[in-house]
Design a protein around this nucleic acid. Structure first.
Lengths: 342, 342
DNA sequence: CAGAATATTGACAGCGCTGTCATTTTAACT
DNA sequence: AGTTAAAATGACAGCGCTGTCAATATTCTG
C-alpha cells in the first residue's frame, strides 16, 4: 500500500540514499543508476513523503501564498498559478489570507511559519507593498518573492515580479486619445495601493505625451470596488462635466463595471456617448454590456513565475530556472465599451 | 529560535510525552500537570511541528479541500471557512482544484494523498455528487465530508453537509407568487448539478402549492454562467412570452445578473415590468442595478461545519464536536430586483 | 494500613526521509 | 600495470513528534 524510499531502493538494488539523490536531482549519480532508480520509482509509483522530507531536510517543500485582496478572481488566479508550479516541483502550498488591519497579523504569520517550516512565501499586492511585512520576514529570515505593481528596479530584480501597470495604463490611455478623446476621466482605486498611483501616472504620462491637458476634476479618488465605480462615474459625470468627459478609465474592471452601470443609469450610451475601460481582464470585464475594453493581466502566469522565482531562491545554486520572467506588461484588449469620440 | 517539544518538557519539568499528551488533549493528565505544561507552552510560544506530527502519528493534521467550481466567490468562501477551523484546530489545509473531465484526476488525487498523508477531504459540489469520486475514496480508505445540495437523508447524515436548495427555491418562488406573479420563468443551471434539480423542484413545488400551473416553456435549460443568464432571459422573453412572463428566477446570482442585463437591453424595466431573483447572495447580487433579491447561502459557515464534521470523524470518539450543523437552508434576501406584479 | 486497582507519567523506538562522512568504484594519470 | 585523484555510493544518525509499554504515583478496597 504505502511505498517508501526503502521499497524503491530495494527494487532498484541501491541504497536508500541513492534514491534520495535521484529524486532530488543531485549531481554525481551515474546515468545508469539514475535510470534504474527512476524505473523503480515509476514501477512502484513512488511519491516521496512530504512530511518526512520537511522534517529531515534543511530546506522545506512547503511554500506559502499570502494575500489580502478582496478580489476573488485575482486570488484564485494567483493560487492556481502557484499551485500548478508546486505540483510540478513536488511542493506543497499553504494559503494564507489575512487582512493588514488585523492586529494579530504578525502573530498569525509566526504561527504559520512555526507550524510548517516554509521554504518561502509569495506575497501579493497590496500586502507585498508593506515594508512592515518585508521587514518582519527579513528579521525572521524567511525567503519571499513579491508581486508588485511598478517598473522593475535593479536591486530588487531577483525577489520581485513586476507588473508594469504604468505602461499598460499609458497604452490604454493612448488608445482613447488616439480615438479622439481629450477629456478623459480616471477613477482611482485605493490610494494605499501602489497599482493606483502607477496606473494614474501612466494615464498622466500618456496625456502629457499627447499634449493633452489633464484636469484634476477628471480624477476621482475611489476604492477598488463596484460601488466606488458607480460613485466615481456619478461624480465625474455630474452636471458640470457631463458633456465634457467622453471617456473614463476605470482603475480596475470592477470599478469600470460600476461606472458602466452608473452611466447607463444616467441614460448615457456606451460607447457612443462615453467610452469606458477597465483594467485586469477579469470576468467582470466580460459580464457587462457592452463588454469592457481592458488591460489583460495574466495573473496565473505571473504567479507561476513568482513561484518559480521563489524556488530558485530556496534551492541554492543548482537546479536554477533560467526562463523566469520578472516583468509583465498587461496588454490592451479592445472590446466594445470604447470607441471613437463622436 | 526554534522551540521543540523537548524545550517545553524541560521548562515544565516533565517528560516529552506528557507535553505531547497535553497538546493533544489526551485524558489522564492531572489538572496540575496540564496547567504547568500549558504555562511552559505559552511562555515559549510553542507551536508543534506539523511535519513531525504527520510523520510520527497514525492520524494526520492535514486535510484537503477539493473543488471543481468555476465560481471564484464560492471557492474563496469555502476555503476561508475551512481554513478558519483548520487554524483553530492546528490543522493544515491543502487545496485541490481539479476538473472532473481531466482523465488524470484519479492520478492527481492519489498523488496528493501520497505526498501528504491526509486526515480527510472536504468535497464541494458538483464534485461531491460524483459517485465515482466517493467510490475511489472509499476504496482508498480516505475520510471525507461532502457538501451537497439536497434534503438530508438519514444514512448519510454523518458524512454530509446539506444545503436545502429545494426549500430556499420554494420560498423564493413563494415570495414571487405572493407578489401576484403567476407566469414565472426559471433559468436552470447545469443539468448535471444536483442544485439545479433541487432548485427546480422547489420552484415547481411552490407553484403547485399555490395552485399555479407551471409551463414548460417557462423553464430554460442553461449553465451556471452569466452568458447563460443572458441567453435564458432572451429565450424566455422572446416574442411569444414577452408579455406573459412577469418574473424570472435565476439559477444563481451570476445567471440572474445576466438575465437582468439582457432584460435591460430589451428595454424592460426592473422590477416594474419584470422581477428577477438570484440565488446564493454572492457579490454578483450586489453588483447589479437594481440589486438582486436572492437566497443567502452562508458558504463560509457551511464550510466551517464541513471541516468540523471532518475533524470529528478523524479524531475518533474523544474530542467530539457536538454543535455541528449539517443542514442549511438559504434565507431569502429581498432587495430591489423583485416587486409586486403591476 | 497492607494490597490491589487505577490513574498518571516516562523511556524509548521509529515514522520516512536528508545530511554527514566513510567507503567503494571508476577515471586519470605516470 | 600501479598509483592517485575524483566520482559514485552507502551506512548511519537524527529531524520532532507519537505509539507502545513499562514504571511510578495515587486512590480505593476491606
Amino acid at each position: 500500500m504505502k511505498v517508501t524510499i526503502n521499497d524503491v531502493a530495494k527494487l532498484a538494488g541501491v541504497s536508500m540514499k541513492t534514491v534520495s539523490r535521484v529524486i532530488n536531482k543531485e549531481p554525481s549519480v551515474r546515468k545508469k543508476t539514475f535510470d534504474v532508480v527512476m524505473e523503480a520509482v515509476n514501477e512502484l509509483n513512488y511519491q516521496p513523503n512530504l512530511a518526512a522530507r520537511n522534517l529531515a531536510g534543511t530546506s522545506s517543500f512547503t511554500i506559502g501564498l499570502v494575500y489580502d485582496n478582496p478580489n476573488a478572481y485575482y486570488v484564485i488566479d494567483m493560487q492556481n498559478g502557484v499551485l500548478s508550479r508546486c505540483k510540478d516541483e513536488g511542493y506543497e502550498l499553504v494559503i494564507h489570507p489575512c487582512s493588514y488591519s488585523e492586529a494579530n497579523m504578525e502573530h498569525d504569520f509566526k504561527t504559520m511559519i512555526k507550524r510548517s517550516r516554509l521554504a518561502g512565501l509569495v506575497l501579493t499586492p497590496p500586502l507585498s507593498e508593506q515594508s512592515s511585512i518585508t521587514n518582519l520576514l527579513d528579521e525572521l529570515n524567511i525567503h519571499y518573492v513579491r508581486v508588485l505593481s511598478g517598473r522593475p528596479s535593479e536591486e530588487e530584480q531577483d525577489t520581485c515580479i513586476y507588473v508594469n501597470d504604468f505602461k499598460a495604463a499609458y497604452e490604454i490611455t493612448m488608445h482613447l486619445l488616439n480615438h479622439g478623446h481629450k477629456n478623459i476621466g480616471f477613477i482611482c482605486g485605493d490610494k494605499e495601493h501602489k497599482s493606483t498611483s502607477e496606473r494614474l501616472e501612466g494615464y498622466k504620462a500618456a496625456m502629457a505625451d499627447h499634449d493633452t491637458e489633464t484636469n484634476d476634476a477628471f480624477i476621482y479618488d475611489g476604492k477598488y470596488s463596484f460601488e466606488s465605480g458607480v460613485e466615481g462615474a456619478q461624480a465625474l459625470l455630474a452636471d458640470d462635466n457631463k458633456l465634457a468627459i467622453t471617456a473614463i478609465l476605470g482603475g480596475n474592471d470592477e470599478m469600470a463595471a460600476g461606472a458602466l452601470f452608473a452611466s447607463r443609469l444616467m441614460g448615457i450610451q456606451i460607447p457612443e456617448q462615453l467610452s469606458i475601460t477597465g483594467f485586469e481582464n477579469s470576468p467582470f470585464s466580460r459580464q457587462t454590456w457592452p463588454k469592457l475594453t481592458t488591460a489583460h493581466q495574466e495573473n496565473d502566469v505571473i504567479s507561476q513565475h513568482a513561484a518559480r522565482l521563489l524556488f530558485t531562491k530556496t534551492r541554492g545554486a543548482r537546479n536554477q530556472d533560467k526562463d523566469i520572467i520578472t516583468s509583465f506588461t498587461p496588454s490592451i484588449v479592445v472590446r466594445d465599451s470604447s470607441g471613437p469620440k463622436l
